[in-house]
Design a protein around this nucleic acid. Sequence first.
DNA 1: GACCATTTCTAAACCGATTAAATCACATCG
DNA 2: CGATGTGATTTAATCGGTTTAGAAATGGTC
Lengths: 342, 342
Amino acid sequence: MVTIADIAREAGVSRATVSLALNGKPGVAPETRRRVLEIAERLNYQPNASAKGLALQKTQTIGVIVPDISSPFYAELVRGVEEEAGKHDYHLILCTTAGKRAREAAYLRLLGERRVDGMILATPRGQEEAIHRFREARFPLAIVDRDIPSADEIIEVVVDNLQGALTAVEYLLDLGYRRIGFINGLPDLQASRDRLRGYQLALRERGIVPDKHWICVGDYQEKGGYRCMQRLLKVKPPLEAVFVASDLMAMGAIRAIRKAGKDVPGDIAVVGFDDIPLSEFFNPPLTTVRQPIARMGAIACRLLLQEIRGETILERKVTLRTELVVRASTPSAEKGGDKQGK
Amino acid sequence: MVTIADIAREAGVSRATVSLALNGKPGVAPETRRRVLEIAERLNYQPNASAKGLALQKTQTIGVIVPDISSPFYAELVRGVEEEAGKHDYHLILCTTAGKRAREAAYLRLLGERRVDGMILATPRGQEEAIHRFREARFPLAIVDRDIPSADEIIEVVVDNLQGALTAVEYLLDLGYRRIGFINGLPDLQASRDRLRGYQLALRERGIVPDKHWICVGDYQEKGGYRCMQRLLKVKPPLEAVFVASDLMAMGAIRAIRKAGKDVPGDIAVVGFDDIPLSEFFNPPLTTVRQPIARMGAIACRLLLQEIRGETILERKVTLRTELVVRASTPSAEKGGDKQGK
DNA sequence: GACCATTTCTAAACCGATTAAATCACATCG
DNA sequence: CGATGTGATTTAATCGGTTTAGAAATGGTC
């Protein structure tokens, strides 16, 4: 592997000069610089990132920790991060934890050893004290899709889950439904708790007291949605609609509904959450609360890089708005109007 | 940040001794080792990976290049790689190219600078000469889901695409269909070419000459499948079935078919390829050719690590078998039997 | 020609580890 | 008692860069 010393020898100058020349620093004669560059090119010189990292105490790398890269939500999130990072010549070390606390802790440690310049964390709960250690060490950290209470210094990018859930359920109410079920994700995510609150709030606003049997806790996966829906189908009198805390679970719910010989949205209307790439193409296309997933990743990354560069950041807490996307898993407005008319 | 020197000072020994103690090397008195370990623990010592990388010429990192992490296929592939890598204490640097040759080249270069211990490449075509450079430099490289001709030394993990396509189309033929269309992916992937050949072979075996209008080239995405199917729906007399080279496209095809007011599998049967996680839950559940995607990633990773460790590898070319998974986008056997009877 | 300022370049220290070779302390043996 | 061996430890070089202080060369001024 060709090093700076090789170039120095070839060019008949010192290593210091080569370094200065290659990095465009002042104090090198134009002719010398030209020659060094030309030789570097010819020898196909590739600066050793480890050496550079050691000397500069900077690795041009950020660590990303997610539960599972094969989940569409996290895949999309990572895509957003990666695109933004790439623009700034930063690399990603990808860590997936499979939801295991132990792996989370191990990766947190490993990324520390790697001396990554910053980290993006998108895992549910856990590692609170690790997070506070980082904060105290003024280590750049961004948290996505999760509220970590009382830590002003930490970058946080979330979506307004309460508002999103509220809007979704209000939409169902406007369509004339009153018996509306809710399939939630695991309650160790702040997002789940907020969506639950939004659901409850919307119903209460209209004077509806949700029965606790209308609510089921899933796992954000397809199967959880399927299982929950099977439970909710037993509710008497039957539910008219369900709000589901993730699109993956909404797909499972729809599968369960059809398996029971019922129609979506004819018998039961379904609203999901996330708007993962496939929701648009699902059958039926999902009415859902869109989160700007990739954008959340990109914003977290951008803020993190600003923090790394030591730029001043006006606001470390970013809350993005959701948007209700109406497709075919809920009846079209006219039909809803009919229903309301009854 | 605490370094080996801090520990040395604290323990009253030299840095060399600390290094030996921490790495479990012989020649350190048990009592000294104990003390060093205890101090390292207490100071929360984290070895600097850059320094280590520089000294050992080894980074415990592999680079992974894929076109797009938010595509279910590649997400699943990366998951397989990551799991395997994690077992061996290896980290992943994730690079996505969005199919752009320029980004591919840039990442190849950057990973070189990172001195990753090896690379896994899962991109269509391109970079042939870069690949050959790596090969000549005896740099560990594994290629997944793509044939790179004439390079025995390079690890390659592929699936038997021809066999898979053949089986799928034969299955449709056995169901009694004769007018079978084909939606392919971009022909710059060897996989696409093999699947096309499998399709043609199966038909020819039964004395059917596929009309060129039965074949459409998509892009492996949902939208491509939709677009292609719209074209294939115009074929007269109408096709009875389509074989689609990816599940994502199959989903698009089904969307188009339903939009045209036809039923799957009643009017047109559909067989996909890949068996991505959602295919099982799609509506209708997809009959498809299963690729062991995560396993391909894991195997590529394992072989790569063996290569890195300098272990002898018996066979660098691994071809995995596919498996036809029958679900509901094709009629059940009885119905097919009827059809054949006509 | 002496003096000074600039420009260009280099020597050497440093980043934080590993490791081969040298040294040291101490026990064993002839 | 001196030679020898052994185990523990240290010294110093090394990996491949960056950076600072200062040397050397150049040119201008009086």
